[in-house]
Design a protein around this nucleic acid. Structure first.
Length: 301
DNA sequence: CTAGGGGTAAAT
DNA sequence: ATTTACCCCTAG
């Protein structure tokens, strides 16, 4: 709120965040050259991207290296003589908001960077995508691998595995992820979707009578990366009260997903059938696509 | 080219 | 008057 010089538009911020999510923090030039973002960021330089990302990260985590220096220069609040209670590193008090659906996950330690990574708020969705992208396993990554990746590089709340399961299921249901047997891979972009018509194997996909995982040609529930980023951009400007309310809503959403996942887990048969159907669909898709490679995320600079 | 420090105009 | 957010400069 303090610098209408050439203020960054939400679109620019979203593009920047999407770029960082895609290429990783620090690859400013790569992001700038990416056709996906150059349209929005063509006015900005790589340094601008870096600076903006710094500001956003500082806001997210609170204590960037820069804030520290600036605060050190000044003087802290006249703390009362009350002796401080050092927080044990491993026993951080977890408020509701911190574990709230694992949405405020500190992330971004760029695998090739130092051990003290910058941190920012990302949705679990994006973290999953990041994990799959970085793992770069040919056939996709299974849930355990993804969980291990995230847990080792970042921290995870106690109920993280449940949340991850629910999220993976949800993302698979709406097409953002494709599940083959036990492995997940990034779903194809809407433009590269197999077909508007549903193939026989497509019908097999939702053979589960109970769950209605929207198989309509209109994908109303599919969120694109840009939409998620816009969502995050909006949250940036929220007051604490609004953010708390949004977090509460997200929690409710996650709880619903968890309930669904647990219900599915109770019926292992259905889950197995679902997995097999997914495999059948994937094979059919492969044949349909023939030589075409559904991977649209490999960008060699 | 990137990371970080510093300056400064604008907003509270 | 303090904080915020953009931009510039410089070292690695």
């Amino acid at each position: 709120m303090g610098a209408p010089k050439q203020k960054w538009t939400p679109e620019e911020e979203a593009a920047l965040k999407a770029g960082v999510l895609k290429h990783g923090a620090g690859k400013w030039r790569t992001i700038l050259k990416d056709q996906e973002f150059s349209g929005v960021l063509y006015l900005r330089s790589n340094v601008d991207l870096k600076d903006k990302w710094r500001n956003m990260s500082v806001m997210a985590n609170g204590w960037g290296s820069r804030e520290k220096a600036r605060l050190a220069l000044k003087r802290m609040q006249p703390l009362p003589k009350q002796d401080e209670t050092p927080i044990a590193p491993g026993k951080v008090v977890q408020s509701d908001e911190e574990i709230a659906d694992a949405k405020p996950l500190p992330a971004f330690g760029s695998a090739q960077q130092t051990g003290v990574p910058k941190r920012s708020i990302v949705r679990l969705d994006n973290l999953i995508m990041e994990a799959i992208n970085n793992l770069e396993e040919p056939g996709g990554s299974n849930k355990t691998t993804i969980a291990t990746y995230i847990e080792e590089q970042y921290w995870a709340p106690p109920n993280f595995k449940r949340l991850l399961s629910a999220k993976l299921k949800f993302l698979t249901a709406n097409g953002k992820l494709i599940k083959m047997k036990r492995k997940y891979r990034i779903g194809p972009p809407p433009s590269a979707l197999v077909d508007k018509r549903r193939s026989p194997s497509m019908l097999l996909l939702d053979g589960r009578p109970r769950a209605p995982p929207k198989v309509d040609k209109d994908e109303i529930t599919v969120l694109t990366k840009a939409q998620i980023d816009l969502e995050l951009a909006k949250m940036r400007n929220m007051t604490p009260e609004e953010a708390a309310a949004a977090a509460a809503q997200a929690v409710a959403e996650a709880e619903a997903a968890i309930a669904e996942a647990e219900e599915a887990a109770r019926e292992a048969e259905a889950a197995e059938a679902d997995a097999e159907a997914a495999q059948a669909f994937a094979e059919a898709a492969m044949k349909t696509l023939k030589g075409r490679n559904p991977q649209g995320m490999m960008a060699r600079a």
